[in-house]
Design a protein around this nucleic acid. Structure first.
Lengths: 141, 141
DNA sequence: TTCCTTGCAAACGTTTTGCATCGGT
DNA sequence: ACCGATGCAAAACGTTTGCAAGGAA
């Protein structure tokens, strides 16, 4: 019985090869934010013949099940990552590096702002764009 | 000499009918967040025969010139608004209402977080999603 | 065996581009 | 008159859908 078999079952999803493979891929790249296309390329490289349409379908299902998270940063392409505890993102506009962070003050402040406008806060997107101080920064991407 | 003639000239853009009209439209809807398609529909309704491609081209130019702001919320469609002082957004997931707000503590906190990760902060996107307490909330959109 | 899932190809909606014509300056 | 701006149609892009074939329970 494979690792994510129970994960999928618990989510109410039948255990199929594509679902298992895609979940596995995202689990083994916990720090990456992969597009559907990149995921498809990884699978193809591993000699898995899984169609791009299936990748999209499976990603939608996994997201709905709460197993992965979909991100829409500034480009036109969505990216996906395995579900971790809540966090926000810091993106280097030069090298594309993405840092995940959590800040409790920020979360509290968002609640305060929502209350001020009489909103019941469901979720938020908070992405900081800047330039990182990495030496190899401009080389990447 | 029309209102936004100088605005366009100052931005280094030749004053043309489409540019003038589109800027005018956004200026007269300061609280709206319109998609290219909606803008095109408004123009068509006003008997302006401006192509959708031109709308896209002009919006890109106006954004580049800093005269308008492009937003990519959660849908697949971008929306545009005239440039105002910096602000973030609060969106009602039920009725689609968008509230603009500024919070200095938030801005300071973002700076602090960026510094912590050794980033030089350029910009940020911060959107809160929730449910507003409006009586007519569920009727709209 | 039963349905759900998959692969493929075709459709989709938004945005971009090529090209001939038009229009500011 | 010049060169950029426009309209139209077609292409491009990421994503979704229809359908017949395949696969897990």
């Amino acid at each position: 019985m494979k690792d994510n078999t129970n994960t999928l079952k618990d989510a109410g999803l039948k255990v199929t090869h594509p679902r298992s493979k895609i979940l596995e891929l995202l689990q083994s790249h916990p720090d990456d934010h992969l597009s559907a296309d990149e995921i498809h390329a990884y699978l193809t490289r591993d000699n898995e013949s899984i169609g791009l349409a299936t990748v999209y379908r499976v990603l939608t299902q996994l997201e709905l099940a709460g197993l992965i998270q979909k991100n829409q940063f500034s480009d036109n392409q969505s990216s996906y990552e395995i579900q971790k505890k809540h966090h926000d993102h810091l993106i280097c506009t030069k090298c594309g590096k993405i840092i995940e962070f959590v800040n409790d003050d920020l979360e509290k402040l968002q609640e305060k702002i929502s209350e001020k406008f009489q909103f019941r806060l469901d979720s938020h997107v908070m992405t900081l764009f800047g330039e990182c101080k990495d030496g190899n920064c401009s080389n990447k991407k």
